[in-house]
Computed example of a mutant assay.
Amino acid sequence: MAALDIVKAYYDCFNQKDWNGMLALLSPNIRHEPNQGEPRIGLEQFTEFLKIMDTSYDETLTDMVFMSEPSNKRVAVEFVVNGIYKQGEAGLPEAHNQTYQLPAAAFLEVEGDKISRVTTYYNLPLWIKLVSE
């Protein structure tokens, strides 16, 4: 399967909140590089991250644009995060079901038929502003 197809399936699972489907597309040694903080390595750490995300946020991605490169290893995707901030996290504003729309992007690497790296970028100060208004 082409890297682009794998990444599209991953984000389809995200929008369907099919966490097991997402995890099935990841390498056991997945490297998750978040916008802030240290990388998470491995399915166990990524699974814990998904649990926190599912508890604190309800997000759907729209306006998705996928870009791949000739080696069939890397895919970039640009999207808008449409979210509800359900439960606060340490160091972030208090949550009370604020809605937000935030532009973001991700870069993914595929080895074999599994995603081996997910790197995500977004404007955290803008997100804080959106949920603080």
Rank of each mutant, 00 (worst) to 15 (best):
K8L: 03
Q87S: 13
C13R: 02
T99C: 09
T119G: 13
N97F: 09
R117C: 13
W19M: 14
I84C: 12
S71D: 13
P93W: 01
D58N: 13
C13P: 00
N20L: 10
R40C: 02
Y121H: 11
I84N: 06
G112W: 00
P93I: 03
D18Q: 07
Q36A: 14
D54N: 14
Y57S: 09
F46G: 10
Q98W: 03
G37R: 04
G42K: 06
R40Y: 02
K51Y: 05
R40E: 02
R40I: 08
E38Q: 15
Y100R: 05
M1V: 05
A2L: 06
V77S: 10
L43T: 07
W127T: 13
M53D: 07
K129G: 12
P34Q: 10
C13N: 05
A2C: 04
N82K: 05
E59H: 06
A106P: 00
E38M: 12
T99S: 13
I115M: 06
M67P: 01
D5R: 05
L108V: 06
I30T: 08
E133W: 05
K86P: 03
H96M: 11
E89I: 15
V7G: 02
G88K: 11
T62Q: 09
N20K: 10
I30L: 15
P125K: 08
Q45V: 08
F46N: 08
I41S: 10
D12W: 01
Q45S: 15
E59W: 04
K86F: 04
D5P: 01
P28G: 12
Y121C: 13
E111G: 10
V131H: 03
F66Y: 14
N82G: 07
R31Y: 02
S71H: 05
S71M: 04
A104L: 04
T119N: 09
D113N: 13
L124D: 05
E89Q: 15
F107R: 10
L130V: 14
P70C: 10
I41E: 07
E78K: 11
D58A: 13
L61T: 04
H96Y: 07
L126Y: 05
V118W: 03
E38G: 11
I115H: 09
D63V: 00
E111K: 12
E69M: 07
I30F: 08
L50V: 14
S132F: 10
D58Q: 11
E44T: 15
A76C: 02
G37E: 01
P28H: 10
I84L: 07
K17P: 01
L102T: 12
V118T: 09
S68P: 01
T60F: 04
Y10Q: 12
P34F: 12
V80S: 11
T119S: 14
L23R: 08
G91C: 12
Y11L: 06
P93S: 02
M22V: 11
F46P: 04
K114M: 02
L25M: 04
L124W: 02
P125I: 11
L108C: 09
V80T: 14
I84M: 07
N35H: 00
K86L: 14
C13G: 01
V7W: 00
F46W: 10
G83Y: 00
A104G: 15
D5C: 01
